[in-house]
Design a protein around this nucleic acid. Structure first.
Length: 431
RNA sequence: UCCCCAGUAGCUCAGUUGGCAGAGCAAGUGGCUGUUAACCACUGGGUCCGCGGUUCGAGUCCGUGCUGGGGAGCCA
């Protein structure tokens, strides 16, 4: 197969090549006709000149519809009039399939329509750019942990029990008389992994049956979750900061063209460097009150609160030591102030909200059992988890980074639904 | 679960005081030897979301249901 693609066409100037792809657009000026062909890596213009090719191939232009698949053979020429600077002067035009009338036009579609056609929408340039950034984000995050000696340890998707209440869990039958729940987090399993391998991470989908209809929520979303033995809150904050800086730098270097397609203001990304600011929950509450928000101490922050706080900073900002009452059972209380837990959230700038959440984990079996009971959970169901504290318990900590929110922030797009190939939303399970 | 907005051609929308169903794009036909969302001419295209009501007459007003969107709550 000929290796030419539109992203390496410059290497073939003057040579005869065969390009395979799909028709994005066509224009005619009579005896000169133009095809814009998409091949998955980019686009290229193909020129059909009546005098340069035989009649039969030239006339195939008429039957071509939007998104028809084709193979075109011709000479690569440099031409400033062509998008990308190169075009193919065709000698042959072969059609693989004539597409039916393509539903997605070149402009003007509503969100509902586009989501109904997500399987086709993926072909458009903006979606292409977002999902290429997503690829870089995941690849860079995984490489980041691999390079630091972490072991990739996959967590199960089907789990026997809820971390929290069952109201936000998707439930499914598991053979006779058993229920399984779709995982909300790989964390508890990563804690087991950290006791086995010291440093581990998982990367996969998580599921929350929350009836949230906001730009920051999906019912199925991806997290990358590292867990580290012999580590405390400061260690994972440093790790999280370094991860974000590394990801942003890599996207800026690998996805310049995509960011341009998305019209992202890259100057806002270029200033993402260490160190990030780190403020306590108490100070965040003071910021809100200074902004005139009648915030009640002890609550968790809402979406609007997070935006107000992050707007005070140009870089991502850590908020640490939330009230224990607002956080889950496994977080370790601050020995210096038992009413708060050793946790942190990282808020992205520009109102994108929490992209990372993590904590030191309670390592004492008695305290952990107590916290489980206080949360209304049965210690029996978590017997395996309590075992981790009975057999060589050590201080450990970890966090989870939400892939979609991170991608949305980096791309500067308003809604997370475009940052995953096939979004699952409150009212949407198709396609 | 609550609040707000919308539903009219394949798509995006307009539709006046309640009085003949409209535009742009897309599609089809023809024209044009360098187009860039090309352009020009012509053509076809409607369950006005469903149900009920008011009225001589409803896309328009009222009630109700459904669907979608935005937001709140919720959200390790």
């Amino acid at each position: 197969m000929n290796p030419i693609t539109t992203n390496n066409i410059d290497q073939y100037e003057g040579k005869t090549v065969t390009l395979s792809g799909w028709l994005v657009h066509k224009r005619s000026s009579g005896k000169v006709r133009f095809l814009v062909v998409r091949d998955g890596t980019g686009i290229a213009q193909v020129t059909l000149v009546k005098a340069e090719m035989d009649e039969e191939h030239f006339e195939r232009y008429h039957s071509l519809t939007l998104e028809s698949s084709l193979m075109v053979t011709g000479i690569v020429k440099k031409d400033d009039r062509a998008p990308g600077g190169y075009e193919i002067l065709a000698s042959q035009l072969n059609i693989l399939q004539i597409a039916e009338e393509y539903p997605i036009a070149e402009k003007e579609h509503g969100v509902g329509f586009l989501l109904d056609h997500r399987h086709l929408w993926l072909r458009s340039s903006k979606q292409h750019a977002v999902l290429r950034v997503r690829h870089t984000v995941i690849q860079t995050a995984r490489r980041f942990f691999d390079d630091r000696g972490f072991i990739l340890l996959d967590a199960p998707i089907m789990t026997p029990v809820a971390c929290e209440g069952t109201t936000t869990l998707f439930e499914t039958d598991y053979f006779e008389e058993q229920k399984a729940y779709l995982s909300q987090s790989g964390q508890l399993y990563m804690e087991a992994g950290a006791m086995a391998f010291r440093k581990v991470y998982c990367c996969g989908p998580t599921f929350r049956a929350e009836k949230s209809k906001t730009r920051r929520h999906l019912t199925e979303f991806w997290m990358i979750e590292p867990e580290v033995a012999f580590a405390g809150l400061p260690d994972i904050m440093e790790l999280a900061e370094s991860l974000i800086v590394t990801i942003v730098k890599e996207v800026l270097s690998s996805n310049r063209e995509d960011l341009r397609t998305l019209e992202r203001d890259v100057s806002k990304l270029e200033m993402i460097e260490s160190p990030f600011e780190s403020i306590s929950y108490d100070r965040a509450v003071r910021i809100l009150r200074n902004e005139g928000v009648p915030f009640e101490r002890g609550n968790d922050f809402g979406g609007g609160d997070e935006t107000l706080i992050s707007d005070q900073f140009e870089k991502p900002v850590f908020i640490h030591r939330y009230p224990a009452s607002s956080k889950p059972f496994y977080m370790k209380n601050d020995p210096e102030k038992s009413s708060v837990v050793l946790c942190m959230d990282l808020l992205a700038p520009e109102g994108y909200g929490e992209i990372i959440g993590g904590s030191a984990r309670e390592e004492d079996v008695e305290l952990l059992s107590q916290k489980l009971s206080n949360a209304g959970l049965s210690p029996e169901a978590f017997s395996w988890y309590l075992d981790l504290r009975k057999y060589g318990s050590v201080p450990h900590a970890g966090f989870g980074m939400g892939i979609e929110r991170t991608v949305a922030w980096i791309c500067g797009i308003p809604h997370v639904r475009e940052t995953i190939p096939f979004p699952r939303l409150l009212q949407r399970l198709y396609p």
